[in-house]
């Protein structure tokens, strides 16, 4: 009792404690994320983001070839890989400006599955033409191409070329995606896993398979898209070839299934990921 009294006296002497309950700490206010899109609008946005050409490392390679062709031996040097002539960049005699390190390379490698060609497109670079148009690369895009053909690719980073004829590159593309594809005699099969920001939309792939050998044009796995509110729409198709996916927003079920018209997506991914025919 004596000890208890002494402690009380001490607390009174010392004034309020550090985390006094009397302090009006603001209450936790997390505004519930309210979808700005309906499920139908989310479907349209998702289909729109994935319509048209799928991002292609070969398109980047083509751009880089064109942009590097305006350089000279002194700036940024010869070949398909610029090694950064100086930190501040350099201007070639043509008036093109080159800054950073990067480019692309192709090499022949082999693993347990046999030989493959590795296309490595990496960089932290900016190239600016004399009119001020630019291409920016920040990251790497590595593809392993095998006979069959089949391939596996990883992309981490951002790519943007505002004047590109490819809309996905002109609007900028950013991602963290692993994907693979196989061309079978009777059709194509692709798998996608990760995140991709393309055509202004942020899209998520969770163990997605598409094409022959899977469920055809109906995917397995889950595909998501970020609502303008910041919330996530998810279309979960499972693994049993359901024609339509269960729809959730921020993890909460929405009372309708959604059918995504992803016709031709597997073909577009295949076309984008193999060398131009």
């Amino acid at each position: 009792m004596m000890l208890w009294l002494a402690i009380v006296a001490c607390a009174q002497e010392a004034g309020p404690t550090l985390s006094s309950p009397a302090l009006p700490i603001p209450e936790l206010v997390t505004t519930p994320i309210v979808a700005e899109w309906s499920a139908d609008e989310a479907v349209r946005a998702l289909v729109g983001a994935l319509a048209g050409d799928f991002p292609s490392p070969f398109r980047i390679r083509e751009s880089l070839n064109g942009w590097l062709s305006h350089g000279d031996p002194g700036c940024p040097g010869e070949g398909t890989f610029m090694a950064g002539p100086s930190f501040e960049g350099c201007t070639a005699q043509s008036g093109w400006f080159y800054l950073g390190v990067g480019g692309y390379s192709e090499s022949l490698s082999e693993d347990d599955l046999g030989p493959y060609v590795e296309l490595n497109m990496m960089g932290d670079l900016t190239i600016v033409d004399p009119e001020g148009a630019s291409i920016d690369i920040g990251g790497h895009w590595i593809a392993a191409l095998r006979e069959g053909p089949s391939w596996r690719a990883v992309l981490n980073g951002s790519w943007v070329e505002p004047n590109s004829p490819a809309d996905w590159l002109a609007t900028g593309m950013s991602g963290w995606l692993e994907y693979a594809g196989t061309v079978n005699p009777d059709g194509h099969l692709v798998s996608l896993d990760g995140a991709l920001a393309v055509r202004g939309q942020a899209v998520q792939f969770t163990t997605v398979n598409l094409g022959v050998g899977g469920c055809g044009e109906t995917p397995t796995g889950a595909i998501g898209i970020r609502d303008p509110s910041g919330g996530a729409w998810t279309f979960d198709f499972g693994i049993d070839c359901r024609p339509c996916g269960a729809v959730t927003f921020e993890g909460q079920p929405v009372e309708t299934d959604a059918c995504l018209a992803l016709d031709g997506l597997a073909d577009r991914v295949i076309r984008a990921s193999g060398p131009p025919q």
């Binding site: 932290d124 900016t126 920016d136 920040g138 990251g139 790497h140 981490n156 980073g157 951002s158 943007v160 900028g172 950013s174 991602g175 963290w176 990760g194 995140a195 991709l196 920001a197 942020a202 899209v203 998520q204 970020r226 910041g230 996530a232």
Partner: peptide, 22 residues
């Protein structure tokens, strides 16, 4: 805010909404 390259201007200056759940 997770960048592929921490010294790249577009990777560092832009928010990457698609990576939020990574």
């Amino acid at each position: 805010y997770y960048p592929a390259i921490d010294y790249n201007r577009i990777e560092m200056a832009y928010y990457h909404a698609e990576r939020e759940d990574l």
